[in-house]
Nucleic acid binder design. Structure first.
Lengths: 235, 235
DNA sequence: TAGCCCATGTAATGAGTTACATGATTCA
DNA sequence: TGAATCATGTAACTCATTACATGGGCTA
């Protein structure tokens, strides 16, 4: 239900074809949304049938024809009503965090590798955002104009960048934590065997490689910083 | 494709019914995933047919019967293969950021209200996580055991908490930014009219309430901190 | 000449949500 | 007595992804 508002929102400022909209979803809007052309085209046709947008065929030299869409008054009304509605509860879906949560099932070496790979993934997203914001920044300064749309879109870009920076930092910190607690995984070659016996673990039988908490308490407290309220402890 | 691994991952440590799994998705696992019972039940049946899990009916006193699932060897193999596969590229879907991006279409007063409401939403998530981590922290200290699973799940919880803290901070900063740039929206009553003319905007016709950038440059630079590389400027 | 960019789609499949259906116990 | 919790599901629908289809122009 949100894709259509992403389209209406974009068309509220610029006329565009499905292909143009996809380009935007891959560029600035990738901070908060992603979509395939095969979803955008049918949605555009649906929006036109509902008279929220209208289209015009524009011939191009040396390129295929374009179907350029324009938002209608009704479309603007729908967009505004959506914008004024109370915000939805955030619905988390983070595949990488899910994997991390279950990484006790694979050897430590693999855990560290995955964290490093993911850090790179996030670094690339950040680099892309930095580029986008740099270009926009120069353009704003050059044209010397500020508008509400520019303000809000840069605010969103800031949020995106902060998110990537913090995710990268978390990867680094977690790599350090895992390295400091390597022994919890036991020998790498034994990992397969360990897992086979893990099903008895819920009955409070200690895991072969479990250690007493006090051994790692300091590492833990440092990792968490002030996120934990550690009452009854003298430090 | 990830829900099934969320289920397998959970069952890799504890035997559980569909209802139990749902409870977990609403609790600790809500940091990175959410799912409905009407999706979990059919998935469990599918997993059983594929022999990745097996079930046993457990009668209960004063409560309906439970269908308790156990992961099979084949299920563990599938889980491990998924965990060892290279991480997927993150797929962003943040409805609130999408709305924020297009908030030039509604009055400033409404923009500020929405940012405040969303901040509260995130604050509630944070409070819930704090509670969860506090309970786990006490339990770890009491039992005095540390295992790889505990390590990784707390790392994920940390990430979740950081995310909420930073989102809240971003809301606050953005509220301040919007307040400082209120005039970009013009009079609230005029908002409807403004939007009607916005379609001519792509032709570089300045927006009625546009101001020169230099007027807000300092506010902007403060908002961004060191996120922008502002070359050729003396500060 | 192979592969990418432009441009628009359809079809099949998979994932996710909302509504409906049932029925016992427990708590206010 | 009504609402919430426990417990398992089906059906209808919407949303999202992957694969397929077409075809001209540009670039290495």
């Amino acid at each position: 239900m949100s894709l259509r508002y992403g389209i209406l929102g974009f068309l509220s400022k610029w006329e565009a074809s499905g292909y143009d909209i996809k380009r935007e979803f891959d560029d600035v809007m990738s901070v908060f949304w992603h979509s395939h052309l095969s979803q955008i085209y049918p949605e555009l046709n649906k929006l036109e049938k509902e008279e929220l947008i209208s289209s015009e065929l524009v011939p191009q030299a040396g390129k295929p024809d374009k179907k350029v869409y324009t938002i209608t008054r009704k479309g603007r009304e729908w967009l505004m009503n959506w914008l004024l509605a109370p915000p939805e509860a955030p619905k988390m879906k983070d595949v990488f965090l899910m994997q991390t949560f279950f990484m006790d099932n694979i050897p430590v070496g693999e855990v560290l590798l995955k964290l490093q790979m993911y850090k790179k993934e996030r670094q690339q997203r950040l680099d892309k955002m930095r580029e986008i914001i740099q270009i926009r920044w120069e353009s704003i300064k050059e044209r010397n104009v500020m508008k509400a749309r520019i303000l809000m879109s840069t605010a969103v870009l800031k949020r995106g960048m902060e998110q990537e920076i913090q995710y990268i930092k978390w990867c680094e910190e977690t790599i350090r934590l895992v390295e400091a607690c390597k022994n919890l995984w036991g020998k790498e070659e034994a990992a397969q065997t360990q897992n086979t016996y893990a099903e008895t673990e819920h009955a409070e039988v200690p895991f072969p490689t479990a250690v007493s908490f006090s051994e790692v308490e300091d590492i833990f407290l440092e990792y968490f910083g002030d996120l934990i309220d550690d009452k009854g402890r003298n430090r």
